[in-house]
Design a protein around this nucleic acid. Structure first.
Length: 511
RNA sequence: GGUCCGUUCGUCUAGUCAGGUCAGGACGCCAGGUUUUCAUCCUGGUAACAGGGGUUCGAAUCCCCUACGGACUACCA
């Protein structure tokens, strides 16, 4: 057993459904953990009560489950480093915040929102290069650094709302190295005195994140690059807590961008873009608004995962199709690209098509059954297996299967106008009547035999192959497309095929 | 505005660190082939180094500038 076991975490906040960017972050964390025989921890960062959305946490867990990237520890599983909801760890954060105050690396601030607003306005008007609460501006504000000890103690005693801010150094370069982005350096004067502890008794992300990652022995922080700019503050926190030597390795991943151009993909994009941005369907508990999900749209989880993992990462070879186990073997953080990517729905569909072809037809039969039930179609598995084997290669989604096969279960009640015009000629009824005669006298209704008999008839009478076969297709399918008519008739039975052709002869109007 | 990051076919990308194949693959698209049709499938094609300066015998690759794009700049994460 390695002493420094790899431990990574996926730490979403339950503010709504997980979008595909978050899903990708989870995938990368999962792959990295599995590759190193490490732990993959799910931590719920629910420190913002105002943004809490009921059902979001369950949604996150369900999504990971659907994709087959379940955590090995954390919310829903538990483990030795719990609790894993940050809201249940308030006391821990409080303790560490106080520790920072004791050591002089943090201070109380009593500024009201209005005062903060005024400060920002003033700095803006002055066109100051500094527009945040930091070493320069804090001296003019209402905090424990500018007030006397008595005043501070009085405020604290009488319940004046306060926050705890990180006291940044005046002049210090904060350096860190990121697996994806490389070496970084920020000057402390460009940073702000981040709020660590809010007046409602909850920590902010910055404090909770650092404390938890340390306490939970996280070795690698793999997160979205929207966190890059606040990482220096996190580094400082590790340093001030004396955890510098056990600091995790950082890897900031490029963001998923809106395909229509501007900005990072957000939860609000929903179906506005013409495709799902969520793994599972989501019903907004307040508005009841429904956002579609990849699962419900018919994507297979493994196909979706395969597609998603290639957004911003590649193995350095031309291989694009991977099983999860292969991914676990070959994934590497340092092959994650630096720039954001938009995604291509067409390619996602292509992956799904590919994965559908790889599925056993027996399994597709089972997946298809619910759709048939909905359509009130009664049939047996053996027949379904034959039917699906015939049309499988034409499908991208299981849901395509119905439109591809409906004529096997219901005789056409109408004939596609365009197909009639193109394929049903003046002599078609006579041609079809002849076919009926042949069919009636054929005992062997296998596709092979039908093909032989009918082709012989065509040759003997010097008929046009397309004309005859297209006519049959129109009669039994109702449209001009589909697999081999011999196969279809064979599966449909002699009786049904004859019935359909006879009906077509009577029904289709010549024009 | 400030700070940080990025920019190769329409899209995802290889190649950049260690400069030297008319820049490779995939999706899409187009064409041809297979097929009774429509798909699938097969073959081929289309299409990119953001722009400008350097350095060099030689630059997608190294340096500088510009443009464009993105992130952050909340008592949100």
């Amino acid at each position: 057993m390695k002493s420094n076991k790899v431990r990574v975490r996926f730490a979403p906040s339950p503010t709504g459904p997980l979008h595909i960017g978050g899903v990708r972050t989870a995938i990368f964390n999962y792959l990295f953990a599995m590759q190193n025989d490490g732990d993959f921890i799910l931590r719920i960062e629910d420190t913002d009560r105002n943004r809490f959305v009921p059902g979001a946490e369950e949604y996150i867990i369900e999504s990971l489950k659907w994709l087959g990237i379940e955590p090995t520890e954390g919310v829903g599983i538990e483990g030795a480093y719990g609790p894993y909801h940050q809201s249940e760890r308030k006391e821990i954060y409080k303790k560490y915040a106080n520790e920072l105050i004791q050591s002089g690396h943090a201070y109380y601030a009593f500024d009201t929102p209005e005062e903060l607003e005024m400060m920002r306005e003033r700095l803006k008007v002055e066109k100051s290069s500094i527009q945040q609460y930091n070493a320069v501006t804090r001296v003019n504000m209402n905090n424990s650094l500018t007030k006397s000890e008595e005043e501070v103690n009085e405020k604290l005693a009488n319940g004046t709302p306060y926050v705890i801010r990180l006291k940044l150094p005046d002049d210090e370069d904060i350096k860190f190295s990121d697996i994806v982005l490389g070496d970084f350096s920020f000057h402390s004067s460009q940073l702000d005195d981040k709020i660590l502890f809010k007046s409602d008794g909850m920590p902010t992300y910055h404090l909770a994140n650092v404390v938890d990652d340390h306490l939970m022995k996280i070795t690698h922080v793999i997160r979205g690059s929207e966190w890059t700019n606040s990482t220096p503050s996190h580094i400082l926190l590790y340093k001030y807590f004396g955890w510098e030597n056990e600091m995790p390795t950082f890897a900031h991943m490029p963001l998923l961008l809106k395909p229509d151009g501007k900005g990072k993909l957000s939860k609000r994009d929903g179906d506005r873009l013409g495709f799902p941005v969520f793994p599972l369907e989501w019903v907004n508990p307040e508005t009841k608004e429904i956002s579609s999900g990849y699962k419900e749209s018919g994507y297979f989880p493994d196909a979706f995962l395969n597609f998603l993992v290639l957004l911003g990462w590649n193995p350095g070879t031309t291989q694009e199709v991977f099983t999860k186990d292969e991914l676990i073997k070959i994934f590497s953080i340092d092959r994650i690209g630096k720039s954001g990517s938009k995604f291509d729905l067409e390619k996602a569909k292509w992956f799904n098509h590919l994965y559908l072809q790889e599925k056993k037809t027996e399994d597709l039969v089972q997946e298809f059954k619910p759709i048939l039930n909905e359509k009130r179609v009664k049939t047996d598995d053996e027949f379904l297996l034959d039917v699906l084997n015939l049309v499988k290669e034409r499908a991208t989604f299981v849901s395509d299967l119905w439109s591809l096969t409906s004529y096997f279960f219901e005789a056409p009640i109408s004939y596609e106008a365009k197909a009639v015009k193109k394929k049903w000629k003046e002599d078609s009824p006579d041609l079809m009547t002849e076919i009926v005669t042949i069919l009636k006298s054929t005992d062997d209704f296998s596709a092979a035999n039908l093909e032989e008999v009918i082709k012989k008839h065509i040759e003997d009478n010097e008929l046009h192959m397309g004309k005859v076969l297209n006519g049959i297709r129109l009669a039994i399918v109702g449209s001009a497309s589909g697999p081999s008519v011999f196969e279809i008739m064979s599966l449909l039975s002699a009786e049904e095929s004859i019935k359909r052709i006879e009906r077509a002869v009577q029904t289709i109007k010549k024009n």
